[in-house]
């Protein structure tokens, strides 16, 4: 008997160690997409949440599988990523999503043949009623889409654009606008930046790393009249963690009275991998996932 105890002691000790190790390394609890995303509320300053804010440790993580965008040409028929992990928090006026996914390349440059990593969250403008098509809505049933791009995050960090940000060894002889004086300088620079002169928000100086958009089906994406969402991001160990926070409701946003805490609605997501030249409809998407805007922490 004693001999047996002695024999099994190291095994017990190893099992106990392994159990303790497993407990210590146990990931945050996660649930499948079918159980939905719960945006617990009671957190102050939703708009200020960063990827590593401790508040996220108290949020339940939902694992959302990705689907290929195989509905409209050009398609993304190959899945380069299987899933994203989503958490959400809300307060009385805003909701924030923390989206994490694997991406071994950090693609923050948007230039020529280089594309930016990006992620988007899509919500119906109001809860209840007929649910819009999950693929960017449909005529008469629009959706709000909030797109975060790594290149926007970079632009916020770097400030005014210059060629050397993308090509460190490049030289430029001359820009005519630089030689002009006073008001002419700005007007001449604007004359050559036609996207800016035309009022395209894509060309404007970045104030946030998130675009607020709405759509009524593929190809119909438009900026919302007021840009209000914020982004925060971290890349490390081959993973992106991005926080997108948006107001629950804004009077200027079309589509109804907006969302309110306590409501049940849906969210859908899309991911673009810049290293795979993914942009526009070349993306991976999700189905609608139930979203509960509220729940006690």
């Amino acid at each position: 008997m004693c001999k047996n105890v002695k024999k099994f002691c190291p095994i017990f000790a190893t099992l106990i160690f392994l159990f303790a190790f497993a407990c210590a390394k146990k990931p945050a609890p996660s649930v499948p997409a079918a159980q939905g995303i719960t945006a617990n509320y009671g957190v102050a300053a939703i708009g200020e949440l960063a990827c590593d804010s401790p508040e996220w440790q108290r949020a339940v993580e939902t694992v959302v599988p990705l689907l290929p965008q195989d509905l409209t040409d050009p398609k993304q028929t190959v899945l380069t990523l299987a899933e994203i992990r989503v958490k959400a928090l809300c307060d009385d006026t805003a909701v924030a999503f923390r989206i994490e996914w694997q991406d071994v390349t950090q693609d923050m440059v948007e230039e020529g043949s280089r594309f930016s990593d990006a992620v988007a969250v899509q919500l119906p403008p109001v809860a209840g009623g007929e649910v819009p098509d999950p693929t960017m809505g449909q005529a008469g049933l629009p959706v709000h889409i909030h797109v975060w791009k790594a290149s926007y995050e970079r632009a916020l960090d770097l400030g005014d654009w210059s060629l050397r940000q993308d090509f460190p060894n490049a030289t430029v002889d001359h820009y005519p606008s630089d030689a002009a004086s006073g008001e002419d300088k700005e007007s001449l620079a604007r004359q050559y930046a036609v996207g800016l002169a035309a009022g395209n928000p894509m060309a404007a100086k970045r104030l946030s790393s998130v675009d607020d958009l709405w759509a009524e089906g593929f190809g119909s994406l438009q900026p919302l009249p007021v840009q209000a969402s914020k982004g925060s991001a971290q890349w490390g160990n081959g993973r992106w963690a991005v926080v997108i926070s948006r107001p629950l409701a804004l009077a200027e946003w079309p589509g109804g009275e907006g969302l309110q805490k306590g409501q049940n609605t849906f969210a859908a997501f899309a991911v673009w991998d810049g290293s795979q030249n993914q942009a526009g409809s070349r993306k991976m998407r999700t189905a609608w996932v139930p979203l509960r805007l509220g729940g006690a922490l």
């Binding site: 230039e111 020529g112 894509m202």
Partner: peptide, 19 residues
């Protein structure tokens, strides 16, 4: 998509204006 598509490569991406 236009840059990919044009076989004569007569459409160019402006990385300053992003269009």
């Amino acid at each position: 998509e236009c840059v990919r598509a044009c076989p004569y490569k007569r459409v160019f991406f402006n990385s300053h204006t992003r269009v």
